[in-house]
Nucleic acid binder design. Sequence first.
DNA 1: ACACGATAGACAACCTGGTTAACTATTTAG
DNA 2: CTAAATAGTTAACCAGGTTGTCTATCGTGT
Lengths: 156, 156
Amino acid sequence: MSSHTPGFELPLRLLLAFRTLIEELHAELARQGHPDLRPMHGFVMQAIGPGGTTAVELGRTLGVSKQAAGKTIDTLERVGYVERTTDPRDSRRKIVRLTPYGLDALDRSARIFDALRARWAADLGEDRLQALESDLRRMTPGSLWRLDTPGWFGNL
Amino acid sequence: MSSHTPGFELPLRLLLAFRTLIEELHAELARQGHPDLRPMHGFVMQAIGPGGTTAVELGRTLGVSKQAAGKTIDTLERVGYVERTTDPRDSRRKIVRLTPYGLDALDRSARIFDALRARWAADLGEDRLQALESDLRRMTPGSLWRLDTPGWFGNL
DNA sequence: ACACGATAGACAACCTGGTTAACTATTTAG
DNA sequence: CTAAATAGTTAACCAGGTTGTCTATCGTGT
């Protein structure tokens, strides 16, 4: 009966696996000229996308307050990954766009993530990895970006 | 060739899956009389264990500074999950022990995690879930508790 | 026996990434 | 043309981390 894995291992392994991937990503990004990029910056830039966005919108897609989104944009702007321009058609809005440097980071991230996935595929077998991904997809909500996370996992 | 899942989905799904489980756990814990328990409290209590520990030791097993461990213990103490008693054999040390309330929370957490795992098993099939667990085990470091995490995922 | 180094804990100052609340400036709707 | 809604900023706060410093106690070597 209780030859089963204890239930608490699953979430821990999921978190550990996540952290491991992220650490590897950022180690590699640092090597490739992006030493100041933090994990959350990557996520936020993904969420901004090549099309640009605004603070309110970003907050909504990320599931945090507009103020939090604003602060994050501030720091991204300070490090040179995004820039703000005011919308000509609505002078309340400020459009946040990735800079070329930001796009470069995003690009490299995508490639590194692919490489990491390839490493998993090599270790586990492509079929097995696909099963894993499909199982996770099945057990998680569809929306990839609303991580909804105070601190990206943080509180609550 | 590139019919593959983009690499960035994997980490996201891992995080999402983790968060989903944790949210379900805490929703259920709240229902069962532990509305103030935060995710990290659960982890820390697991790490403390029934035997008790000290701040320095806890910091080591969690991979954070002793000061951070101390602060966490403070808040756990305030909410009534742990208590500090000074070690009679070494008056520098203060032994942190789970209170009955804390033990109850830990207990319920374990049961809820088992139930959640059972739900996954029902959805995916026990064999498939075991494959998933074993794959994750393979791709992650052995030490479950050293989450090493500023904010449990937070920064860096 | 005792001084000295190592250890446990506490405290302070600071960082990040969240939160609410309050305020300004603009746009849109009635 | 006024009133409500919306975008952004600022401020005060919280949690959980960091480092650095300080005190008290323990253990060891001469």
